[in-house]
Design a protein around this nucleic acid. Sequence first.
DNA 1: GATGAATGAGTCTTCATTCAT
DNA 2: TATGAATGAAGACTCATTCAT
Lengths: 225, 225, 225, 225
Amino acid sequence: MPTTAPAPSSARAPRWERRKDARPGELLDAALELFVDKGFAATRLDAVAARAGVSKGTLYLYYASKEDLFKAVVRQSIVPLIEAFQHDVAQSSAPSATLLREFFRQWWTRFGATPLAGIAKLVVGESGNFPELARFFQQEAVLPCAMLLASIVHRGVKQGEFRPIDVEASIQLWISPMVLRAIWEHSILPCCPPGFDVPIERFLEAHLDYVLGALEPARGQGRTS
Amino acid sequence: MPTTAPAPSSARAPRWERRKDARPGELLDAALELFVDKGFAATRLDAVAARAGVSKGTLYLYYASKEDLFKAVVRQSIVPLIEAFQHDVAQSSAPSATLLREFFRQWWTRFGATPLAGIAKLVVGESGNFPELARFFQQEAVLPCAMLLASIVHRGVKQGEFRPIDVEASIQLWISPMVLRAIWEHSILPCCPPGFDVPIERFLEAHLDYVLGALEPARGQGRTS
Amino acid sequence: MPTTAPAPSSARAPRWERRKDARPGELLDAALELFVDKGFAATRLDAVAARAGVSKGTLYLYYASKEDLFKAVVRQSIVPLIEAFQHDVAQSSAPSATLLREFFRQWWTRFGATPLAGIAKLVVGESGNFPELARFFQQEAVLPCAMLLASIVHRGVKQGEFRPIDVEASIQLWISPMVLRAIWEHSILPCCPPGFDVPIERFLEAHLDYVLGALEPARGQGRTS
Amino acid sequence: MPTTAPAPSSARAPRWERRKDARPGELLDAALELFVDKGFAATRLDAVAARAGVSKGTLYLYYASKEDLFKAVVRQSIVPLIEAFQHDVAQSSAPSATLLREFFRQWWTRFGATPLAGIAKLVVGESGNFPELARFFQQEAVLPCAMLLASIVHRGVKQGEFRPIDVEASIQLWISPMVLRAIWEHSILPCCPPGFDVPIERFLEAHLDYVLGALEPARGQGRTS
DNA sequence: GATGAATGAGTCTTCATTCAT
DNA sequence: TATGAATGAAGACTCATTCAT
């Protein structure tokens, strides 16, 4: 026979590969995208498996149920990001204003522009069905960020760099635009011709302007409301 | 007609309690609560019917499908609220600062503290599955509010009451805390012992402080960022 | 138009009928046959539904799960049969030997030749997976029968019609051939060219012979074993 | 051969613990227990493998399928027991009554008190799904026993030790208590507080009493039924 | 109009079996 | 030979939708 067909033993692609270590991460990645896009109930495990390139049964080797997978997706997306953030940000002795700038810019880079933004939307949307995830999110993502921001502000006030303010209210006010913009980019925006289109750079710039303006010690103390 | 049949409207007890006219609203109310709480997929029509006090089949006399009902819930919750808001707010010739205060306070009263807040959460959560609803929401709820706020600011600037600013960015920044707080109260907050607890009054006060502070014409013109 | 086609409104057979009251019984009958034939795990609900002439979903209107259906099958097959047996048998003041004959003949007519025989086989086979059913069977079927038989024997002994014996052991010995034959006819026999073929009449005759022989008061007291 | 490879058999620890020869038996033992307890369908091969201390894949090195394993369990449990029984019992020239006693006592020792009792329950329970096993059981276990018993009785009758009787019916009647008791101890009894508790010794004693009583040649010839 | 029994397509989950290692 | 990760067909169960009453 004149054909030069390769030996059948090595030419055939294996029907599947054994990738015990890599699988959990791949599954979580696939699941994350779909859960963020469609929510818990509307995500079919078939789709997750297909996207991860495995069969449906394989999912169950790593996660005991759809709910389990869902919780793992949320938990494992949050923890490493938050830890890195806490570790890296605000460790310096730079002026508090600089730290604040850094905080918001980093926040966007690390959360707003990453899957965590999708997770925020997801947790908000599913909180009615998975309250324990909402609690987890609050404890492990929201509060750490808020505390970090609060500590920067407190330091600035103590050192006279900032004027004294209502820190708790301010933190909510200042984090909100970041969080909502992140959520928006994973929900409304992909569906719509954007009404206003403010690029993130300009958005951040304006935000920092206002925040630092409000903290400026020189400014007249209080205003009649 | 010679028959002696009694007048159908009043002569005997009706076989069913209620009239055709009141039904749609009652169904929408029941559906709204459940959709907001659980999302589209996890809401069962049985539950909606039960809450509305009708049978499952009756739903189909008024809405052709679950999706239809869902869209009706979203649309009919938004439209009247927005219309009333546009009509009532900013019709006065009061100082722009006063108008602005009024805008935010009314916003909270009319949206933040009403079912619409739940709708916002719902639309954000379901945008992946119902992009046309997201578009509708953007067009009918988000943009009108944004335009209203923009018009107030523009007027203030033109009349010299406010200093000139980046209006588009500012609007996003200033609406965000309101919207996110509204969403939060329908998602994370009901599940959690609140980490920080800032009452809505204090929250609004601080917010207005910052917004008006940023618009104050007296203040130093710009800041290097 | 010259066709005489019947009016379409009345000619079409309805897609299904509403038979709320009759359904549970029909479902149980269908399930009984299949469970007895194949056991719990190997019986598919599709098959039960098909045999009952309904769709799979209809099963769940009446029984919450496969297990529920299974338990209902067992429970509701046993109770009426046993009650009728207890009520009808051994109410007479006939000679105890006559009563005894009647007991065994009725037992076969009412149990051995009815679905209950299949249930016995089924419960025995599934006892490992459904111990509470085994307990139920013991309490509601086995013990009542045993007590009835015991009471007949006790009466006969007290009245001098029977010689005294070990009642408990005897009851087991005397019920066993009946029960095992009943089980056999629902298990091994349908599969096999029967090795020995003893018709039920001859079987009962021999059985009664031995039982009454053993109870005969005239016979020599005891035998060296 | 000049290689310095160590002798494979003893020089290093084998990568796997056991040898090919012992495996099949160990697998069968593990499978027997589980099949008897749970039946065919409800027994998972995982569980069998775990109990045998091997991996699931290993099962397939010895048995081509679950069904294969099942049949092997039944077949290989029966054959040796029956063969030994046939070989040992009824080889003597003792009085027929003694032989009969021996038969029943041995039957209990060799079957009633061994795994074969579980097999009987299993085959009865699975006969609907595995009729060929039922046939096998009938041929290889039931009939041999019955023939053995029959031959003893026939001999006794021929030698005038027993009175003439309906042998076929009697055999069924006399084997039944043994078989049913054996089945019972592997099904209902483990689940229940026993209603009556007759120890096996007393049970056998009573049984032999009746059987030998019925065979007593002295007794009045027949009885009207 | 109103009901709710009946339907059946759709999804999660299990598990016997295969096969790369 | 032994392993156990991967497969995929099969089955229980759900629930939006229909329709006889």
